[in-house]
């Protein structure tokens, strides 16, 4: 089963990130919204209606799915034209969206010769065709160069600022941190978090003090005496949660302990995300060089 008891709402005016490791069920969820995959139970509704009940659905919701969904042997313009016609969207809109994504110059060329980035832009043009209030993008930055990534980020923010509902999936936390205002995290088809990005960062980005000392045992005793828990980092350094560098520096001075390092650190969001989904990742890389979790001393 790809998705199990997954229930959440996506709101207009903000970019909602849909985050999960590969195989978590992000694409399946999006395909179920579009009625491409059938859920075994339950339903997906858009403004209270099933997707198949929508008249001219491209005017409600536009989607960019992960796999390319256009005909390589039909010109970019004609690919969009047949989509527009099926939903009674005026033909003038085809040129408009091609202009919007910067493909006007290649409108009469066939997408089979397009680069990954151009293909992605054409897919986005197709999603925007009906000027929909809801947009779904499945891994839109996959395989794009930095310029393309930058363009898509800005586009999503602009579209959200116009009051549209933007739902974008990714397996990269760092990417989400730059684009999304709200975050939905899933792992193995289950909901792990439904929170604003600011909250997520606040709660999950662990602040700690990093310490190195030649008098390690005395330092541990002193920390213990002050009621501070220290964990051992991989390289012999210690990490102390719930204290400032001033607290720890003063404590060391009072006990006459030499410090070789004293620094304030923040765990990356990527690390927080990995910790959150660790239990639900389907395919672990069992490798000694993988992320090493600090252990309690």
């Amino acid at each position: 089963m790809a998705v199990d008891h997954l229930s959440f709402q996506v709101r207009p005016g903000v970019v909602t990130g849909f985050l999960g490791p590969n195989g978590a069920g992000k694409s399946t969820t999006m395909r179920m919204v579009l009625g491409l995959d059938h859920p075994t139970g339950g339903s997906v509704r858009i403004d209270g209606r099933h997707y198949r009940e929508l008249d001219e659905p491209l005017k409600y919701i536009g989607a960019l799915l992960e796999a390319r969904g256009l005909h390589g042997g039909r010109t970019a313009y004609n690919n969009l034209l047949c989509l527009a016609q099926s939903n009674r969207i005026p033909e003038s809109r085809v040129s408009e969206v091609l202009e919007l994504v910067g493909l006007t110059a290649v409108a009469r060329r066939k997408p089979k010769g397009f680069s990954m980035g151009m293909g992605q832009r054409l897919g986005i043009a197709a999603a925007l065709l009906g000027n929909p209030k809801i947009l779904m993008f499945d891994e839109p930055v996959n395989g794009l160069d930095p310029e393309g990534i930058h363009w898509i980020r800005n586009l999503m923010k602009t579209l959200a600022a116009e009051g549209r509902t933007i739902f974008v999936s990714s397996h990269l936390m760092s990417e989400m941190a730059l684009t999304a205002d709200h975050l939905i995290v899933i792992g193995q088809g289950r909901l792990l978090a439904d929170t604003s990005m600011a909250d997520f960062i606040q709660r999950n980005s662990r602040a700690f003090v990093r310490l190195r000392s030649p008098q390690r045992e005395r330092l541990l005793d002193a920390l213990h005496g002050a009621g501070l828990a220290a964990t051992e980092a991989g390289d012999g350094a210690l990490e102390v949660d719930g204290a400032t560098i001033e607290d720890v520096g003063d404590l060391a001075a009072r006990h006459g302990i030499t410090l070789h390092e004293l620094s304030a650190q923040r765990a990356s969001l990527e690390e927080a995300f990995m910790r959150m989904t660790a239990a639900s990742v389907e395919y672990h890389a069992h490798s000694a060089t993988g992320p090493q979790w600090s252990k309690e001393v």
Partner: peptide
Amino acid sequence: GTEYSSGMIRTSLAAVPQ
């Protein structure tokens, strides 16, 4: 068949879900 080989089928059914 080209609806399937090109992946167009997903786009087509998103446009015409009936």
